[in-house]
Amino acid sequence: MRQLARKLWGLARPRPAPLGCAWQEGAMVGVRLQALGKREAAAYGVKTLSVSAHAWGGEQLAQGLVTGLPWQPLQAELNAGKVQVALACPQAWVACGEYAAEGTGKQQAVLADIQVLAAQAVGEDYSQVCFDAQEGAAGAWRWWATSGHWVRQVQADLKSMGWRLDRVTPQQWAQQHALSRLEGGESSLQARPPMDWQFSREPQHAPDKVLEWLQTWGATAQGVRLAACGMALAG
């Protein structure tokens, strides 16, 4: 009964902002954003971890998140088990592809075909792969996939701590999402520390310009922070 009441209360109250996370070899970043009015949000906290693991497992990732993020404002939520995690997945961990649907195939059938393709690309069983797919023009579908095995491991480890994994997104998408909303654009990446980054709710830079900046900054440490901010923004 108490659990039911807690769930109902959880549905009724506004959802808290997610904890955006991103990592690459040797470093993991967690970002919590704070609203500064209607349009802007500032990077609330950035924590860089030195992690030696090359191949990330769910347990390592979860432990890294927990031990690496003892931020005071988050501590209450951490203790109450209210943290929602949005994770940017390194591009190397994401397989992507295109699928041309024949005629006006039903969406379920198209998704089933894509699931098979995604499982083959990731090298997992059909039922294990995690993927997303979106329909473009003229029946052209674009899909992204990652290993369902490690995603479920991360989910299980986070769940044991009362956390919840809400979103897993390719890192490039998260970077582009954040950079298109970063106040000052590339100059902020160059001149401001991540703690002082500010973002708008809507994109304010042209996609071409964003892509150009990402070619320079995408693979750097700033790029990882940017991806974490993108996940916190997208939540």
């Binding site: 995690c130 992204w144 369902g148 997208a234």
Partner: peptide, 10 residues
């Protein structure tokens, strides 16, 4: 703008 690898199939 909205990609979530957790969308399918779970």
């Amino acid at each position: 703008p909205a990609i979530n690898l957790l969308r399918y199939p779970d």
